[in-house]
Nucleic acid binder design. Structure first.
Length: 869
RNA sequence: GCCUGGGUGGCGGAACUGGUAGACGCAAGGGACUUAAAAUCCCUCGAGCAUAUUGCUUGUACGAGUUCAAUUCUCGUCCCAGGUACCA
């Protein structure tokens, strides 16, 4: 027999066996309980990296475990194939997005197969295939038909020099990443989905997802950002029109000394027109239009504003207050206008100080006196109402409701709810994505493409424009068409494509019936398989992808296509695999292999020899090039040791700074098990000795009994770790401990009883390790002469009667400090433990000449005595 | 900035609802086997002190607090990561 485990030979053998026997192919089978496990599908960026390996190994372990538990398991894989990197690669390498993507898919499929993952490859999908995106276009039409999609004007990052729209990622310090031109904000007509219609439902159900990590639902709740407040009406001075603001602090309305409008607010232009502020306001609006207009963006710029020339009337004080326009007010949140209470809001305070506006204290803290002239910052806490007419002296929290009611009686306000969540803009001025199936007709306007004309195919052979622009608008054969409504010849297709989050919002339903041609999915298949029982992916997707998916299921539910609303019953968010970035002054980001160590320990670029700067430790991504390709590990150690190492390194939810130190340990462990198995097979005559399967109490000798109990404890520990917490690192540690215990047995001297226990241990070590290192375990299982493969074997069970030894360790503390330990039988009562603790020689010297205050005895998992003197 | 996490030996990590801090492994040092190497096996391994045998003190980012007892709970501070709506 082989001395050492030979991964090359063994892994190829079992991968072939699995594939030949179609072991991982699944079909709907109502006689079996289904289990749908899904890992987030990868973007085909070229090669898989260690982050993928970690994600997919976690999933594969759970899949193999669930199979052994008797479930009918769906475990598919595919490609999130549309997206910007393909366009960037096409420009950089003078290739084509489609060619690049398909090549990457082929290469990555080979790598995944080498890892031995248990995918049903017959269900593979790629979202860039018309057979897939056809149904996305179909859904878009349904949403349009049902008023779930609409068009409005909104801003994009625009590079004038490249004549193209830039993604946020392509904007570096307000400049274009390709040409360093200052980026402008350009207004375009774009499509939006009314996700805000579901804001409340998405929010409420965050608390009905017990299988999700709290941190993820918390992030989603904060993202949706429900705030309860009031809508107040401020009459514009000299006009009949009202300005409506949303505020969460109606109690401070008496302190509203000015008003701020978002520069995009339609009234900004109207109000300033004809006043002597007109020119100033126009210039300001123009200036702000080049700033990034998002909640994140506004933090980057200095807060500034200008007077519009108009005033409005504070509905509480009836005073005339100036209306400003300011860059920190966003059109997309609330009403695009705020009442400014400088005494109670820091931004308003800064603004008021900067422009010399009035500050009026309306909420006085209970432990200090605020004076508007000496205040250095706003007071946002609670307190007593002042300067607020009939409400003076009231607790401000009570005033919230009372003032709102009062204003409502006067027709100047009402209670209102506002959400931070905005509608989902899905139009992209890009090429490599799903075409939006509408036609623009000069006489009929926006006309949906008739269903029978789907899919609207993306012309895959089209070439990107040099600077990254989409070729679609200029491709007459694509864009020119006849209007389906009036037959007009001068109609044009929408040349925008959809946000790639669309594809990933429903792919898991497509997997249920990937070749179905009558709709998005076969309803019967979805009824059997969906929703996904366990979803696994990076925590980076905690909000966007996961929220969009939840939204899509609500849309499909509303449309009557599915009978559930939540796509993922259980969610595991894996931590990021991180690595430092490296940049060369000449070549930008470098792959790890492109930086070479020099004599003085600094790094040099392998292309130009310039000094490489080592950056922060951040998540692995192709765009930053800080990726580690698993191929080297795979060649040296094989798939199983790579899998084992990834799992042993840290629990899944933890971020991991990548290092290969320690892989030797995994290699050593696997070979240790191999040698142990070979030795057991050589020295234990399997024909005359059977693996032990009784109770620990049936064993005569302490050695065998102890080992048997250890084995049962290990089965329990590994089962719990895989099933309940996904803590594979501690599961592996537990098996290592059992293997170490087995090594202490001298097989040559072992009696029949011990040999029988050893066989039990060996079998279970292989069964417990089989989801983690499947090729290795199959090989040894076969060598042991087992008829069934490990995959057909059921998961081992432990005996409740064989989990505990008959001795308990007692830990004795004096004033909380550990002073002594001893063991007792399980039958000693609390009084007996106390007595033994007090009479212990080591303890006695601490009690000398001191009076006993208290003795605490804890008998839980540990037995502990704390003597307080 | 805001939201969400995280911080434990030289390193990865363990400690389940507060109860022996450092399981398991890596690296390092010492030893055995060997002509040698690889492989394997054994021992040591948080820090400081010591009567250097099993003793004492200290230690889980930092500073306070609650408790008989805090890595675990509360408050504050620092640092790191993820997200921040067009990277996926």
């Amino acid at each position: 027999m082989e001395e050492r485990y030979n991964p090359g030979r063994v892994e190829a053998k079992w991968q072939e066996y699995w594939s030949k026997n179609e072991v991982f192919k699944v079909t709907t089978d109502p006689s079996k309980e289904k289990y749908y496990l899904l890992e987030m599908f990868p973007y085909p960026s070229g090669k898989i990296h260690i982050g993928h390996v970690r994600n997919y190994t976690i999933g594969d372990v759970v899949v193999r475990y669930k199979r052994m538990k008797g479930f009918n398991v769906l475990h598919p894989m595919g490609w999130d194939a549309f997206g910007m990197p393909a366009e960037n690669a096409a420009i950089d390498n003078n290739t084509h997005p489609a060619a690049w993507t398909y090549e990457n898919i082929s290469a990555m499929r080979v790598q995944l197969k080498k890892m031995g993952f248990s995918y049903d490859w017959d269900r593979e999908i790629a979202t860039c295939r018309p057979e897939y995106y056809k149904w996305e276009q179909w859904l878009f039409l349904k949403m349009l038909e049902n008023g779930m999609a609409y068009r409005k004007e909104s801003f994009v990052n625009w590079c004038e020099k490249c004549q193209t729209v830039l993604a946020n990622e392509q904007v570096e310090q307000d400049k274009c990443w390709r040409c360093s031109q200052v980026v402008q904000q350009k207004k375009l007509w774009q499509w939006f989905f009314k996700i805000t219609d579901y804001a409340e439902d998405l929010l409420v159900h965050c608390d009905k997802l017990p299988g999700w990590p709290d941190k993820v639902t918390t992030m989603q709740k904060n993202w949706i950002g429900k705030s309860i407040g009031s809508e107040l009406k401020f009459k514009i001075d000299g006009q009949d029109e009202d300005l409506t603001v949303f505020t969460t602090r109606p109690d401070t309305v008496f302190g509203a000394t000015f008003m701020c409008l978002s520069p995009e607010h339609p009234l900004v232009e109207t109000l300033s027109k004809g006043t002597n502020q007109e020119a100033v306001v126009d210039a300001f609006v123009q200036k702000i239009s080049n700033q990034e207009r998002s909640a994140d963006g506004i933090e980057k710029y200095e807060k500034e504003g200008v007077f519009t020339g108009a005033h409005c009337i504070n509905p509480a004080t009836k005073e005339k207050i100036p209306i400003y326009t300011a860059n920190f007010v966003l059109m997309g949140y609330g009403t695009g206008a705020i009442m400014s209470v400088p005494a109670g809001d820091q931004r308003d305070f800064d603004f008021a100080r900067k422009y010399g506006l009035e500050i009026r204290v309306v909420v006085q803290p209970r432990d200090a006196i605020l004076d508007f002239s000496t205040m250095v910052e706003a007071y946002t806490g609670d307190g007593v109402m002042v300067n607020s007419g009939q409400f003076d002296g009231m607790d401000n929290q009570n005033a919230v409701e009372v003032i709102t009611d009062w204003l409502e009686e006067n027709g100047r306000g009402k209670k209102a709810i506002s959400y931070r969540l905005r509608d989902w803009g899905i139009s992209r001025q890009r090429y490599w994505g799903t075409p939006i199936p509408v036609i623009h007709c000069p006489s009929c306007g926006v006309v949906p493409v008739p269903e029978e004309d789907l899919p609207i195919r993306l012309p895959e052979e089209a070439n990107l424009l040099a600077k990254g622009g989409s070729p679609l608008p200029a491709l007459d054969y694509f864009s020119k068409t006849t209007c389906p409504a009036c037959g007009g010849k001068d109609a044009k297709r929408d040349t925008d494509t959809m946000d790639t989050f669309m594809e990933s919002s429903w792919y898991y339903l497509r997997y249920c019936s990937p070749r179905y041609e009558e709709g998005m999915f076969d309803p019967a298949a979805v009824k059997y398989w969906a929703p996904v029982d366990q979803y696994i992916g990076g925590v980076e997707h905690a909000v966007l992808h996961l929220l969009y998916s939840r939204y899509f299921m609500r849309v499909l539910n509303t449309l009557g296509l599915i009978d559930f609303k939540e796509p993922f019953t259980r969610l595991l968010t894996q931590g990021m695999v991180c690595k430092e970035t490296m940049t060369c002054p000449e070549h930008g980001f470098l792959f790890p292999e492109e930086a070479k160590k020099q004599g003085d320990d600094s790094l040099a670029c392998t292309r130009c020899g310039k000094k490489v700067e080592v950056g922060r430790v951040i998540k692995m991504s192709k765009s930053k090039k800080n990726v580690v390709d698993p191929n080297e590990l795979l060649e040296k150690y094989g798939a199983d040791i790579t899998r084992l190492f990834c799992l042993f390194a840290a629990p899944p939810e933890r971020d991991l700074e990548w290092s290969e130190d320690g892989v030797e340990g995994s290699n050593r462990f696997v070979n240790r098990v191999w040698r142990l198995a070979i030795e057991c097979m050589d020295k234990i005559d399997a024909a005359s000795i059977e693996s032990f399967n009784g109770a620990a109490s049936d064993l005569k000798f302490q050695g065998a009994k102890g080992l048997y109990i250890k084995a049962n404890q290990t089965i329990k520990k590994v089962t719990d770790d895989i099933d309940k917490s996904f803590h594979f690192n501690t599961a592996i540690s537990a098996v290592m401990e059992l293997v170490n215990a087995m090594y202490t047995v001298d097989i040559d001297k072992a009696d029949k009883e011990m040999k029988s226990v050893l066989l039990f241990c060996l079998e279970n070590v292989l069964l417990l390790l089989s989801p983690i290192i499947p090729h290795f375990s199959e090989e040894l299982f076969e060598k042991m002469g087992k008829k069934k493969t490990i995959l057909e074997h059921s998961w081992p069970a432990y005996r409740d009667d064989s989990l505990e030894t008959d001795e308990v360790l007692v830990v004795v503390q004096v004033n909380g400090k550990l002073r002594a330990k001893f063991t007792i039988g399980t039958d000693v009562d609390e009084a007996g433990i106390k007595e033994m603790a007090l009479n212990d020689e080591k303890i006695k010297k601490y009690l000398h000449e001191k009076s006993l205050k208290k003795i605490i005895v804890i008998r839980k998992k540990q037995t502990l005595v704390n003597i307080v003197v």
